[in-house]
Protein backbone atom coordinates (compact mmCIF):
# COMPACT_ATOMS: atom_id res chain seq x y z
CA UNK A 1 0.00 0.00 0.00
CA UNK A 2 1.28 3.47 -0.83
CA UNK A 3 2.18 5.58 2.14
CA UNK A 4 -0.36 8.33 2.89
CA UNK A 5 0.61 11.78 1.69
CA UNK A 6 0.71 14.11 4.65
CA UNK A 7 1.25 17.86 4.66
CA UNK A 8 1.85 20.08 7.68
CA UNK A 9 0.95 23.71 7.08
CA UNK A 10 0.95 26.90 9.09
CA UNK A 11 -1.19 30.00 9.09
CA UNK A 12 -0.89 32.73 11.75
CA UNK A 13 0.87 31.14 14.72
CA UNK A 14 4.11 30.98 16.64
CA UNK A 15 5.25 27.63 15.16
CA UNK A 16 5.36 26.23 18.69
CA UNK A 17 3.14 23.27 17.92
CA UNK A 18 5.22 22.35 14.89
CA UNK A 19 8.31 22.57 17.07
CA UNK A 20 6.63 20.10 19.39
CA UNK A 21 6.40 17.73 16.43
CA UNK A 22 10.14 18.14 15.81
CA UNK A 23 10.68 17.48 19.51
CA UNK A 24 9.39 13.97 19.01
CA UNK A 25 12.91 13.02 17.88
CA UNK A 26 13.03 9.21 17.94
CA UNK A 27 9.42 8.47 17.20
CA UNK A 28 9.42 11.13 14.49
CA UNK A 29 11.72 8.92 12.43
CA UNK A 30 9.37 5.98 12.94
CA UNK A 31 6.45 8.11 11.82
CA UNK A 32 8.35 9.30 8.77
CA UNK A 33 8.79 5.66 7.86
CA UNK A 34 5.03 5.25 7.70
CA UNK A 35 3.97 8.42 5.89
CA UNK A 36 5.06 10.44 2.93
CA UNK A 37 5.61 13.89 4.40
CA UNK A 38 5.28 16.15 1.39
CA UNK A 39 5.03 19.51 3.05
CA UNK A 40 6.46 20.73 6.36
CA UNK A 41 7.96 24.20 6.19
CA UNK A 42 9.96 24.19 9.39
CA UNK A 43 11.21 20.62 9.09
CA UNK A 44 11.71 19.84 5.42
CA UNK A 45 12.73 21.46 2.15
CA UNK A 46 10.13 19.82 -0.08
CA UNK A 47 6.86 21.49 -0.78
CA UNK A 48 4.62 19.40 -2.99
CA UNK A 49 1.22 20.39 -4.24
CA UNK A 50 -1.87 18.42 -3.21
CA UNK A 51 -3.87 16.28 -3.16
CA UNK A 52 -3.06 15.20 0.39
CA UNK A 53 -4.46 12.31 2.35
CA UNK A 54 -3.99 14.22 5.56
CA UNK A 55 -3.42 17.95 6.05
CA UNK A 56 -2.38 19.13 9.47
CA UNK A 57 -2.77 22.86 9.90
CA UNK A 58 -1.31 25.02 12.63
CA UNK A 59 -2.42 28.61 13.17
CA UNK A 60 -5.52 30.69 12.96
CA UNK A 61 -6.94 32.40 9.92
CA UNK A 62 -5.98 36.03 10.50
CA UNK A 63 -5.29 37.45 7.06
CA UNK A 64 -7.45 37.57 3.96
CA UNK A 65 -5.02 35.48 1.90
CA UNK A 66 -5.16 32.80 4.59
CA UNK A 67 -8.85 32.36 3.92
CA UNK A 68 -7.99 31.28 0.38
CA UNK A 69 -5.14 29.12 1.62
CA UNK A 70 -7.17 27.14 4.10
CA UNK A 71 -9.96 26.64 1.60
CA UNK A 72 -7.46 25.35 -0.95
CA UNK A 73 -5.86 23.00 1.57
CA UNK A 74 -9.30 21.71 2.53
CA UNK A 75 -10.20 21.11 -1.12
CA UNK A 76 -6.99 19.18 -1.66
CA UNK A 77 -7.20 17.01 1.46
CA UNK A 78 -9.17 13.95 2.49
CA UNK A 79 -8.64 14.61 6.18
CA UNK A 80 -8.00 17.97 7.79
CA UNK A 81 -6.60 18.19 11.30
CA UNK A 82 -6.40 21.43 13.29
CA UNK A 83 -3.10 21.64 15.18
CA UNK A 84 -3.00 23.62 18.41
CA UNK A 85 -5.13 26.28 20.09
CA UNK A 86 -4.81 28.83 17.26
CA UNK A 87 -6.20 26.38 14.73
CA UNK A 88 -8.82 24.81 16.98
CA UNK A 89 -10.25 27.96 18.56
CA UNK A 90 -8.33 31.09 17.66
CA UNK A 91 -5.36 31.11 20.02
CA UNK A 92 -3.69 33.98 21.84
CA UNK A 93 -3.92 36.25 18.81
CA UNK A 94 -7.71 35.92 19.04
CA UNK A 95 -7.45 38.62 21.71
CA UNK A 96 -7.48 41.09 18.86
CA UNK A 97 -11.04 40.08 18.11
CA UNK A 98 -11.98 42.04 21.20
CA UNK A 99 -9.68 45.04 20.76
CA UNK A 100 -9.59 48.07 18.53
CA UNK A 101 -8.58 46.74 15.13
CA UNK A 102 -6.67 49.78 13.93
CA UNK A 103 -4.68 50.08 17.11
CA UNK A 104 -3.66 46.46 16.92
CA UNK A 105 -2.78 46.65 13.25
CA UNK A 106 -0.57 49.65 13.80
CA UNK A 107 1.16 48.11 16.78
CA UNK A 108 1.75 44.81 15.01
CA UNK A 109 2.72 45.87 11.52
CA UNK A 110 3.52 49.60 11.67
CA UNK A 111 1.93 52.24 9.46
CA UNK A 112 3.98 51.49 6.36
CA UNK A 113 3.24 47.77 6.19
CA UNK A 114 -0.48 48.15 6.73
CA UNK A 115 -2.29 46.71 3.76
CA UNK A 116 -5.76 45.39 3.17
CA UNK A 117 -4.37 41.93 3.47
CA UNK A 118 -4.37 42.13 7.24
CA UNK A 119 -7.85 41.23 8.28
CA UNK A 120 -7.02 41.17 11.94
CA UNK A 121 -9.85 39.01 13.23
CA UNK A 122 -8.35 35.71 14.30
CA UNK A 123 -10.60 32.77 13.55
CA UNK A 124 -10.21 29.04 14.04
CA UNK A 125 -10.06 26.91 10.91
CA UNK A 126 -13.59 25.70 11.55
CA UNK A 127 -14.90 29.22 10.91
CA UNK A 128 -14.08 28.74 7.23
CA UNK A 129 -13.83 25.01 6.54
CA UNK A 130 -14.85 21.64 7.96
CA UNK A 131 -12.29 20.25 10.37
CA UNK A 132 -12.17 16.50 10.90
CA UNK A 133 -10.04 16.23 14.03
CA UNK A 134 -8.43 18.48 16.61
CA UNK A 135 -5.06 18.26 18.32
CA UNK A 136 -5.52 20.61 21.21
CA UNK A 137 -3.45 22.82 23.44
CA UNK A 138 -1.06 25.76 23.52
CA UNK A 139 1.23 24.13 22.75
CA UNK A 140 -0.04 20.69 21.77
CA UNK A 141 0.97 17.55 23.60
CA UNK A 142 3.20 15.87 21.03
CA UNK A 143 1.87 12.48 22.05
CA UNK A 144 -1.60 13.50 20.88
CA UNK A 145 -0.07 14.10 17.46
CA UNK A 146 1.46 10.62 17.39
CA UNK A 147 -1.72 9.08 18.72
CA UNK A 148 -4.00 10.60 16.10
CA UNK A 149 -1.64 9.56 13.29
CA UNK A 150 -1.45 6.03 14.66
CA UNK A 151 -5.21 5.75 14.82
CA UNK A 152 -5.52 6.98 11.25
CA UNK A 153 -2.77 4.69 10.02
CA UNK A 154 -4.50 1.61 11.41
CA UNK A 155 -7.76 2.74 9.86
CA UNK A 156 -9.55 3.81 13.03
CA UNK A 157 -11.52 6.97 13.48
CA UNK A 158 -9.68 8.93 16.19
CA UNK A 159 -11.95 9.46 19.16
CA UNK A 160 -11.77 12.35 21.58
CA UNK A 161 -12.68 11.75 25.18
CA UNK A 162 -14.43 15.11 25.69
CA UNK A 163 -13.63 15.23 29.36
CA UNK A 164 -13.15 18.46 31.26
CA UNK A 165 -9.80 19.36 32.83
CA UNK A 166 -11.42 18.70 36.24
CA UNK A 167 -11.34 14.96 35.69
CA UNK A 168 -7.57 14.89 35.30
CA UNK A 169 -7.22 17.45 38.07
CA UNK A 170 -8.80 14.84 40.35
CA UNK A 171 -6.44 12.09 39.26
CA UNK A 172 -3.65 14.36 40.44
CA UNK A 173 -5.29 14.72 43.84
CA UNK A 174 -5.39 18.51 43.80
CA UNK A 175 -7.38 20.87 45.94
CA UNK A 176 -9.83 22.57 43.60
CA UNK A 177 -9.07 26.23 42.85
CA UNK A 178 -12.65 27.07 43.72
CA UNK A 179 -12.22 25.56 47.16
CA UNK A 180 -9.28 27.91 47.55
CA UNK A 181 -11.56 30.79 46.58
CA UNK A 182 -9.82 31.05 43.24
CA UNK A 183 -10.89 30.96 39.63
CA UNK A 184 -10.60 28.30 36.98
CA UNK A 185 -11.84 27.47 33.51
CA UNK A 186 -11.26 23.76 34.08
CA UNK A 187 -14.94 22.72 34.16
CA UNK A 188 -15.54 24.40 30.80
CA UNK A 189 -12.36 23.24 29.11
CA UNK A 190 -11.26 20.17 27.19
CA UNK A 191 -8.86 18.03 29.19
CA UNK A 192 -6.01 15.96 27.84
CA UNK A 193 -3.25 18.13 29.33
CA UNK A 194 -3.22 16.14 32.58
CA UNK A 195 -4.53 19.30 34.24
CA UNK A 196 -1.04 20.70 34.22
CA UNK A 197 -2.02 24.21 35.34
CA UNK A 198 -4.20 23.47 38.37
CA UNK A 199 -1.78 20.71 39.33
CA UNK A 200 0.82 23.47 39.63
CA UNK A 201 -1.63 25.67 41.48
CA UNK A 202 -2.39 27.90 38.51
CA UNK A 203 -5.91 28.44 37.20
CA UNK A 204 -6.77 26.78 33.90
CA UNK A 205 -7.02 29.44 31.18
CA UNK A 206 -8.77 27.20 28.72
CA UNK A 207 -5.98 26.64 26.21
CA UNK A 208 -7.52 23.35 25.06
CA UNK A 209 -10.73 25.06 24.11
CA UNK A 210 -14.31 25.08 25.35
CA UNK A 211 -16.00 21.72 25.71
CA UNK A 212 -18.85 20.96 23.40
CA UNK A 213 -21.01 19.97 26.37
CA UNK A 214 -20.11 22.83 28.68
CA UNK A 215 -22.47 24.41 31.16
CA UNK A 216 -21.59 28.05 30.64
CA UNK A 217 -24.00 29.49 33.16
CA UNK A 218 -22.81 27.12 35.86
CA UNK A 219 -19.23 28.14 35.08
CA UNK A 220 -20.03 31.82 35.41
CA UNK A 221 -22.10 31.25 38.52
CA UNK A 222 -19.27 29.60 40.39
CA UNK A 223 -16.78 32.26 39.32
CA UNK A 224 -19.10 34.98 40.57
CA UNK A 225 -19.69 33.07 43.80
CA UNK A 226 -15.95 33.13 44.23
CA UNK A 227 -15.95 36.89 43.70
CA UNK A 228 -14.10 36.81 40.40
CA UNK A 229 -14.78 40.10 38.59
CA UNK A 230 -16.47 40.20 35.19
CA UNK A 231 -13.30 41.69 33.77
CA UNK A 232 -11.14 38.85 35.09
CA UNK A 233 -13.54 36.26 33.72
CA UNK A 234 -13.59 37.90 30.30
CA UNK A 235 -9.82 38.22 30.25
CA UNK A 236 -9.46 34.55 31.02
CA UNK A 237 -12.00 33.54 28.42
CA UNK A 238 -10.49 35.57 25.63
CA UNK A 239 -6.93 34.54 26.33
CA UNK A 240 -7.13 31.61 23.93
CA UNK A 241 -10.64 31.55 22.57
CA UNK A 242 -11.82 33.34 19.46
CA UNK A 243 -14.73 31.11 18.58
CA UNK A 244 -17.67 32.95 17.09
CA UNK A 245 -20.05 34.34 19.69
CA UNK A 246 -18.42 32.65 22.64
CA UNK A 247 -16.89 35.68 24.31
CA UNK A 248 -19.83 37.82 23.27
CA UNK A 249 -22.28 35.39 24.81
CA UNK A 250 -20.38 35.33 28.09
CA UNK A 251 -20.17 39.11 28.10
CA UNK A 252 -23.92 39.30 27.71
CA UNK A 253 -24.67 36.68 30.37
CA UNK A 254 -22.43 38.55 32.79
CA UNK A 255 -23.97 41.91 31.94
CA UNK A 256 -27.47 40.63 32.56
CA UNK A 257 -26.50 38.65 35.65
CA UNK A 258 -27.91 35.65 33.85
CA UNK A 259 -26.02 32.74 35.39
Amino acid sequence: MAKPRVGIFDLTSCDGCQVEILNLEDSLLDILGKIDLVNFRIGKEVKEEGPYDVAIVEGSVSKTDEIERIKKIRDQSKILIALGACATHGGVQANINFMDENEVKKAAYGEERLTENYDVKSKPLSHYVDVDFNIRGCPIDKHDFVDILKQLLIGKIPKEKHNPVCMECRYNENVCQFQKKGKCLGPLTHGGCNAVCPSNNIACDGCRGPLEDLNLKAGLRIMKENNVSDKDILNMVRKFTGIDNYYEKIEELLKNGNY
Partner: peptide, 8 residues
Protein backbone atom coordinates in the same frame (compact mmCIF):
# COMPACT_ATOMS: atom_id res chain seq x y z
CA UNK B 1 -28.76 23.22 36.37
CA UNK B 2 -25.54 24.08 38.23
CA UNK B 3 -23.74 20.82 37.40
CA UNK B 4 -20.82 21.04 34.97
CA UNK B 5 -20.74 17.34 34.16
CA UNK B 6 -17.13 17.67 35.23
CA UNK B 7 -16.96 14.14 36.66
CA UNK B 8 -15.35 15.32 39.88
Amino acid sequence: AICFSCAG
